[in-house]
Deep mutational scan, measured.
Amino acid sequence: KKTSWTEEEDRIIYQAHKRLGNRWAEIAKLLPGRTDNAIKNHWNSTMRRKVEQEGYLQESSK
């Protein structure tokens, strides 16, 4: 079943993607209940745009 993505999950994906790049299977290990494919789709459909537009979460990672 599809549940919506939480801010916490987005944060984990964002940090992991910065470190690992497009290694979705590795990132998926950090998110129980999410598949690598689901994460990749979420990144491509939602997060990548956010990151590019806003420099997503930069201000809170100090």
Rank of each mutant, 00 (worst) to 15 (best):
K62I: 12
K2E: 10
L57S: 14
Y14F: 15
D36W: 03
T3S: 12
S61H: 06
A25M: 05
G55Q: 08
N44F: 12
W5T: 03
E54P: 10
Y56K: 13
P32R: 06
S45T: 15
D10E: 15
E9G: 00
N44L: 13
K62V: 05
R48S: 11
S60E: 14
W43Y: 12
R34P: 00
Q53I: 07
I13G: 00
A38T: 08
E7S: 07
N37I: 15
L20F: 07
T6Y: 01
K29D: 06
H42T: 00
I27W: 00
L20S: 02
T46V: 13
G21N: 04
L30I: 04
E54I: 05
D10H: 01
E8A: 15
D10N: 07
W5D: 01
I12W: 01
E52T: 13
T46C: 12
N41R: 09
S61M: 12
S60W: 07
E59G: 11
W5V: 02
K2M: 14
S61V: 15
R49K: 07
T46F: 07
E9M: 02
R34K: 13
S61W: 13
K40L: 12
I27K: 00
I39F: 00
R34F: 01
S61A: 13
E7G: 09
R11C: 03
R11V: 07
W24L: 00
K50W: 05
H42L: 02
I39P: 00
G33V: 04
E26L: 04
K29T: 09
R49Y: 04
E54A: 11
Y56I: 15
K1F: 06
R34G: 01
E8S: 12
I12A: 07
A28H: 01
A25Q: 14
T6D: 04
D36S: 15
L57C: 11
T46S: 12
I12R: 06
N41M: 15
L31S: 00
T3V: 13
N37T: 14
P32S: 05
E8L: 08
W43D: 02
G33M: 05
T6P: 02
Y14V: 11
A28S: 12
P32N: 06
A38R: 05
N41C: 07
E9K: 00
S60M: 07
V51Y: 09
T46Y: 14
N37P: 03
A25S: 10
R48L: 09
I13W: 00
V51D: 08
G33A: 10
L57I: 11
A25I: 06
Q53A: 12
A25G: 14
N41L: 11
N41S: 13
P32I: 05
L57H: 06
K50A: 06
T35G: 09
G21W: 02
S60N: 06
G21R: 04
H42Y: 13
K1A: 15
R34C: 09
Q53V: 14
K1G: 11
E8G: 08
M47Q: 05
K50T: 06
A28E: 05
D10F: 01
K50Y: 03
T46I: 13
A25V: 10
W5C: 02
S45R: 12
N37C: 13
E9W: 00
E9N: 02
G21A: 05
S45C: 11
Y14T: 10
V51C: 09
T46A: 10
W43L: 03
G21F: 00
Y56P: 14
E8W: 07
R49I: 09
S4F: 13
Y14D: 12
G55L: 05
K50Q: 05
G21I: 00
N41W: 07
E54Q: 12
H17Y: 13
Y56R: 15
E59C: 05
I39M: 00
V51R: 10
M47D: 04
R48E: 08
K1H: 07
R11S: 09
Q15L: 11
K50N: 08
E54C: 09
G55F: 09
I12V: 12
I39R: 00
N37G: 13
R48C: 10
A25P: 14
E59Y: 04
G33D: 14
Q58W: 04
L31N: 01
T6K: 07
T6N: 06
W5A: 01
T35D: 15
W5Q: 02
S4C: 15
T46M: 14
S45K: 11
A25C: 08
S45F: 06
E59H: 12
I27C: 03
V51N: 12
E54Y: 05
E9R: 00
E59N: 15
P32V: 09
I12Q: 07
Q58K: 13
I13R: 00
K62Y: 08
